[in-house]
């Protein structure tokens, strides 16, 4: 749709700007201020320039936390997006089943994040949890609290359990918005199920999948509460993602300067990632 030039539209955006800027800009500026100083306590601080940035950039632990984060986010995205679309395609389109499916789908999304951690903490235990006991019964020595690979996999399964619904709901909304005429046209052309998906459904899902991809990218990059409850970042550092590492620095050791420098680097990386995705995915739209 053609949009008209209207500078006065700024007035309509102003409330959003005020509300978001209050909570976004002031803390961000404070974090930038932290990142160039050594802070000992209230009122006691020394300017250190870019020292923290230099230190953080040469820190091996940062590199490994960053690699783990990228690996986790990539895995999460590559499972949740296709799975979510598949679920949306399999959902009934009319009748009483729709509501029931939506209720079940939305359920994990409305569970507080620390409780999500608790659910999987219990479910995954080999002694009292159904999931853990089941895997054990298959003859696999599974223990998310001691075996790094198991901990990582448990977190992955938990995230898929938790968030695939979001992708599925968005994709379902996108599918429902495709006019019936498109399908009829495809039928006349004799397109098969795959043809319909490839030529009609997928292109029309572009918008919602952009939202889903960006939301999952952003949210999985700052994942904190669930691993904190489930594994506490362990065993060892196997599930210490960026936020865990940051929290340990900022809250645990009160190393505000390095933690701030770290989070700014992290913020820049995800900003660049999102910018690339956002630009590529919205490139086709009218600007």
């Amino acid at each position: 749709m053609k949009r008209t030039e209207n500078p006065r539209a700024w007035w309509l955006v102003l409330p959003v700007l005020a509300v978001v800027a209050f909570s976004a800009l002031i803390p961000l500026m404070t974090v930038v201020n932290y990142s160039v100083q050594d802070i000992f306590g209230p009122g006691q601080r020394v300017f250190v320039g870019a020292e923290w940035f230099r230190e953080i950039l040469h820190d091996e632990r940062l590199h490994s936390a960053f690699a783990r984060q990228l690996g986790f986010t990539a895995s999460v995205l590559s499972i949740e997006l296709p799975l979510g679309v598949a679920i949306a395609l399999a959902m009934p389109t009319r009748g009483a089943g729709v509501s029931a499916c939506l209720v079940i789908l939305a359920l994990p999304l409305l569970i507080p994040w620390n409780v999500v951690g608790t659910i999987w903490q219990i479910f995954g235990r080999a002694d009292i949890g159904l999931g853990g006991a089941f895997v054990h019964a298959l003859g696999i020595d599974y223990n998310y609290a001691q075996n790094p690979a198991d901990a990582w996999l448990t977190l992955l399964v938990m995230d898929v359990w938790h968030w695939t619904s979001l992708v599925a709901l968005l994709a379902y909304a996108g599918l429902r918005a495709i006019p019936e005429a498109y399908y009829q046209a495809a039928q006349i052309d004799g397109a098969g199920a795959f043809g319909v998906f490839h030529h009609i459904q997928l292109p029309r899902l572009r918008g919602v999948l952009t939202i889903a991809l960006l939301l999952r990218l952003m949210d999985s990059f700052v994942i904190y509460t669930e691993p904190f409850v489930l594994t506490g970042g362990g065993p060892g550092n196997a599930t210490t993602f960026l936020s865990q590492y940051l929290a340990r620095m900022a809250v645990g050791q009160f190393d505000l300067g390095p933690a701030a420098a770290f989070s700014l680097i992290y913020f820049l990386v995800i900003l660049a990632l999102c910018f690339v995705f956002f630009t590529v995915l919205t490139a086709g739209e009218e600007r």
């Binding site: 976004a24 700052v222 936020s243």
Partner: peptide
């Protein structure tokens, strides 16, 4: 959705970036 105005796309993107702030330090 209706108007074009100076910086609209950038503003939109900036709004989105606010989801990305790592909470621990903030």
């Amino acid at each position: 959705s209706r108007y074009r105005f100076l910086g609209d796309r950038h503003l939109f993107f900036w709004l989105l970036t606010n989801r990305m702030a790592p909470p621990a330090v903030f």
